[in-house]
């Protein structure tokens, strides 16, 4: 189809969205659903600021995939990590370890970090490096980002355990 409705579940909410074959998943999230947390950067897969998690909790690049491909699928965006007003552990760790500077990359970096934690709650150095190499954090050079991920396990729902 060239245009039509897809059903996309975002952060647990199902949406019927009118899309065209010219749109990517990112265009739907930002342009149609006004979920502006996910950022638009290079749109060609090299900066990672558009990262969201798929239904398996893996990091994927929403700029690099046609919207129509996502019919019937579910994704989690940065807006979906908070639960009952409580930040997710990784979010709180990012604040406490100063893994955020300008914040533009942060949604993509956190969704990448969350994906690493979805695979293993106690990631090793290589898990972190591999899981985060797909995003650029121009401000922090990832140094404190890595520190925050290493310590995310110390938190339960926004509080240090």
């Amino acid at each position: 189809m060239k245009k039509g409705f897809i059903t996309l579940t975002v952060n647990g909410d199902a949406h019927e969205v009118a899309v065209s074959s010219r749109h990517t998943l990112l265009d739907v999230l930002r342009g149609k659903l006004q979920l502006m947390g996910t950022k638009e950067g290079c749109t060609t897969g090299s900066c990672g600021v558009c990262t969201v998690n798929n239904a398996r909790g893996e990091a994927v690049l929403s700029c690099l995939t046609p919207a129509l491909e996502w019919d019937g699928q579910a994704v989690t965006t940065i807006e979906g990590l908070e639960k009952n007003g409580q930040l997710a552990p990784i979010q709180q760790a990012f604040i406490d370890y100063h893994a955020v500077q300008c914040g533009f990359c942060t949604p993509g970096v956190i969704m990448s970090a969350q994906a690493v934690l979805n695979l293993t709650p106690t990631p090793g150095e290589d898990d972190i490096n591999d899981g985060l190499a797909g995003v650029i954090c121009r401000c922090t050079g990832h140094i404190k980002v890595k520190e925050a991920i290493r310590h995310a396990g110390d938190y339960v729902a926004g509080r240090k355990a």
Binding site: L64, A115, G134
Partner: peptide, 12 residues
Amino acid sequence: FRAVASRHVRNM
């Protein structure tokens, strides 16, 4: 296989 691009790309 793991050498291809980034984990983000390989997930797709």
